[in-house]
Nucleic acid binder design. Structure first.
Length: 326
DNA sequence: GCATCTTCGTTAGCGGTTGG
DNA sequence: CCAACCGCTAACGAAGATGC
């Protein structure tokens, strides 16, 4: 990401601490710089703490320094001083209840200065990465591992043909049955939204979602029902899914709400939820040393099968896992 | 003289908690 | 929902030690 930085701000960042802290400082400045493009007429721009925190968990020290140095300021609201009711004090203006976050404003001109490139990605190696890399190496593949920004999924060269590549190597797959449809159901459950037909499928473990959908849509087999589902959830074309909409009217409304809420990111929402479970939790904390992630499943060694299956089931009792040999 | 390894103090990131 | 703080620990960076 290209940004501009004045010498004064660069000096402040350089004085924050060692090289690590300086890099973090630059990232936080870059985040503010980019947010500034959305400023209102008074110069204030929204900047939620969760966003800054996701960039650097110790952002507050950096922000405070910028404030001390007179680079930025935050939007204030006046309140009655509890110690002296005739006085007012300024406090940060944000409200979780009313749904508005912190607003900051630049007090100095940031339109000029040196143009630099800031990389928001941290190159900190996480355990999920190490396990994937080591597992690939053990199998004799180069660990070219990437994570996409759309659904935060993990990619590596043999991902698309692992079924052929890893055949008869003593490996197993643990996967989540009807992962995305189930996640959608769980999300609705959480918010207390019940679509009778949709709900009935997931409250009975004997019923398979794709099986039901395939029958209803007169499709050959359950695999053929996966496309209509993703179209229904992610697609823009409403007409193509009229039949599903009729079958699950309340769920359809819920999805429409999601699309409105997350704009163009709605399509990636379920993928991200999946990645959170499979990569950032299950793989990150897996009790074995060998594992490869495949979106909504994990490839593991046959001898680890029971350990990992037990681990997944205790961690996510609300999901349904299945196993098969490669 | 340069590259790599090891050591050690520091930091990031997480979860928990409090408070607005 | 958001801010701030605390404690914990794996992971990191800096710098010294070692190898070639």
């Amino acid at each position: 990401m290209k940004i501009k930085i004045t010498q004064k701000i660069k000096d402040i960042i350089d004085s924050l601490g060692n090289k690590t802290v300086q890099t973090s400082g630059l990232k936080i400045y870059a985040a503010l710089y980019l947010r500034n493009k959305r400023k209102n007429t008074s110069g204030y721009f929204d900047c939620p703490s969760t966003y800054l925190r996701s960039i650097n968990s110790r952002y507050s020290k950096i922000i405070n320094r910028f404030i001390e140095e007179g680079i930025i300021d935050y939007l204030k609201t006046l309140k009655i001083d509890p110690n002296d009711i005739f006085q007012t004090i300024a406090s940060k203006k944000y409200s979780s209840d009313l749904g508005y976050c912190m607003k900051y404003k630049f007090l100095v001109d940031i339109s000029s200065g040196q143009e630099i490139e800031v990389d928001f990605n941290s190159n900190r190696k996480k355990r999920w990465y190490e396990i994937t890399a080591n597992s690939l190496l053990e199998l004799g593949y180069t660990p070219e591992i990437k994570r996409d920004s759309f659904g935060r999924r993990v990619h590596y060269p043999i991902l698309n043909n692992y079924k052929e590549e890893l055949k008869n190597k003593g490996l197993c797959v643990i996967d989540s049955k009807t992962s995305q449809p189930r996640l959608l159901w769980l999300m609705m459950q959480k918010q207390g939204i019940i679509d009778p037909a949709y709900h009935a499928i997931f409250t009975d473990d004997a019923i398979d979602f794709y099986e039901v959908l395939a029958q209803y849509l007169n499709l050959k087999d359950r695999d053929k029902a996966k496309k209509p589902f993703t179209h229904w959830v992610n697609g823009k074309n409403e007409i193509a899914n009229v039949k599903i909409q009729k079958l699950f009217p309340i769920a359809t409304c819920f999805i429409r709400g999601l699309k409105k809420l997350y704009y163009k990111d709605s399509a990636s929402y379920l993928q991200r939820e999946e990645a959170k479970i499979w990569i950032d939790d299950l793989l990150q904390n897996i009790p074995v040393d060998f594992a490869l992630p495949v979106h909504d499943s994990l490839i593991i060694k046959r001898e680890d099968l029971n350990t990992v299956l037990e681990y997944c089931m205790t961690k996510y009792p609300e999901l349904r896992f299945s196993k098969k040999e490669l």
